[in-house]
């Protein structure tokens, strides 16, 4: 492909072969005078769980927002599955298979639990205006299939009994489970989880950990931001430590513990 003269960005689109399924290269982002990201780079191998840790203000949330398309980037690149997705809109990125969850519960409060899941089905038949006008006969079969698939996830996440409750009627822990199962309905290849254990009781948290491990073993790539170091230790294949908008260290949890810089900046503090 030849990059046209009128598209100076075209040259940048031809990316070097990426390391792993997701790679961020030298990401910068300023908010006013604050350097939220100051040259963060790392990559994520397919089929692994990567933990993103660091003190408050390290740039973890900004990084997630930028990778998922919710914050326009300053400079740098996000490469997903060999494609430069920097500056794509959030819904485009989600449709490519890179799906995120949020730090604060973001269930659809006045949709039932199963409706929450069905919303995430990509290209659900009947989800365009013209298809809707063709009536139930046109989309019923596909709807039944999606309902069946949604029920599988509800079973897996222990939400079967609350299928008909509104999102708002769930407990804090159930809302977390709902969010993760909803994200999975979109058939993602990479899950970005922003503090998935916040507000979840320890027993339930262990169950979520088991589910995440099982997903990884099925080939899912997971990146999670988390403050609970126990969970990071038990779950993550790789840990990326951020501080002051850059990556301070990267490696297994055992390696990270050996790293004096990290201990000073974060683990001891």
């Amino acid at each position: 492909m030849i990059a046209s003269e009128s598209d100076p960005a075209g040259a940048d689109r031809r990316v070097q072969p990426a390391a792993g399924i997701l790679e961020v290269r030298d990401l910068h982002k300023d908010f006013g005078g604050v350097h939220a990201l100051a040259g963060a780079s790392f990559y994520v191998e397919q089929g692994t769980i990567t933990g993103l840790i660091g003190p408050n203000g390290a740039g973890k949330s900004t990084l997630i927002n930028l990778v998922s398309g919710f914050t326009p980037p300053g400079s740098g690149q996000v490469v997903y599955d060999g494609e430069d997705i920097t500056g794509h809109s959030a819904h485009q990125i989600a449709r490519l298979g890179l799906v995120r969850t949020f730090q604060l519960s973001s269930e659809f409060a006045r949709l039932t639990v199963i409706e929450n899941l069905l919303t995430a089905v990509p290209d659900q038949r009947g989800s365009t205006v013209l298809a809707a006008l063709r009536g139930k006969r046109y989309w019923r079969r596909a709807e039944e299939e999606s309902v069946a698939r949604a029920r599988e996830f509800l079973g897996r996440f222990g939400l079967t009994d609350v299928e008909d409750l509104y999102g708002a009627e769930l407990s804090g822990g159930q809302k977390r489970l709902l969010e993760i199962s909803r994200a999975l309905m979109g058939r993602p290849r990479v899950l970005l989880l922003d503090e998935p254990f916040a507000g979840v009781n320890p027993t339930l948290a262990r169950e979520v950990e088991d589910i995440l491990r099982a997903l990884r073993d099925e080939g899912m790539t997971i990146v999670l931001v988390e403050h609970e170091m126990g969970a990071i230790d038990r779950l993550c294949d790789t840990v990326v430590v951020m501080a002051a908008g850059t990556v301070l260290a990267e490696g297994s949890m055992a390696e990270i513990r050996e790293n004096q810089e990290v201990v000073d900046a974060y683990l001891a503090g």
């Binding site: 919710f70 449709r95 995120r100 973001s106 409060a109 949709l111 995430a120 009947g126 809707a132 139930k136």
Partner: peptide, 23 residues
Amino acid sequence: SPWCRQVRAMREDPVAAEALGLN
């Protein structure tokens, strides 16, 4: 229709709807 379900999701939380791939 399923279309309206997505419309209602957008009403509830447009940011989360966007994150699930809805335009």
